[in-house]
Amino acid sequence: MLYLGPPKHKQRRLPGDPAVTDWSKHFASLAEQAQHPALQQYYQAGIPGGDTRMAEVPLLAMDFETTGFEPGRDGIVSIGTVPMSLQRIHSSQAKHWLVKPKFALTGQSVVVHGITHSTIEAAPDITDILPELLQQMAGKVVVVHFRGIERPFLHATLLDRLSEGIEFPVIDTMELEARLHRARSPSLLDKLLGREPVSIRLADSRRRYGLPDYRPHDAVTDALACAELLQAQIADRFSPDTPLSELWR
């Protein structure tokens, strides 16, 4: 039988996806270049190698609530993180920060997050909590649902405050869903028949794995929801032996 090798997923890149092949090496050089001590420490902590088995990778599920979707124009208002591994989601060690964006909260985003102006007025600037946040992230691979938010927003915000950004790899549970359900672009026939593509939104993805409905738009709950989804995806379609490099971006 003709062996064609492992199935190649269409590896669609997002604008802003780093073109890094060896993250460990890249972290070492970033540690040299970084100016801010918290960033230096973060890079010095290193990152698991791409060949590490998923079972052994320390992970950090992360979710941001923001004032909008434009990293350069909108700001972060809330950050939730939940440390995890394939064995357990340490929700007991979850962290939650409210931070004050430079940009005004729009009425629309208030409705989404239920975070009000007065709460935000009293919140610290992200630079005040940065050491704590980076300490949470140190040595762990970040897990998000849709990588177009957390990484670009954190990068843009730090670039604005410290004049240096941040780079790190992420595992994107939405992209893992897309690999399964969007392996090909919708055909003309699909479009003609009005076939709806399978939803890869967090709540819809979770339902496919029998995960309960959580109310969205609380940063910690969303991070937890994303953590649970990753465990389910790996239990279902990958394995504890899957190398990290197959999943991260």
């Binding site: 064995q87 357990r88 989601i89 007991s92 794995y209 995960l211 649970e228 389910a232 239990a235």
Partner: peptide
């Protein structure tokens, strides 16, 4: 609730 951890298991495991 704050001290609770979470874990997922696939059917049969």
């Amino acid at each position: 609730a704050s001290a609770t951890d979470v874990c997922y298991f696939k059917a049969g495991s």
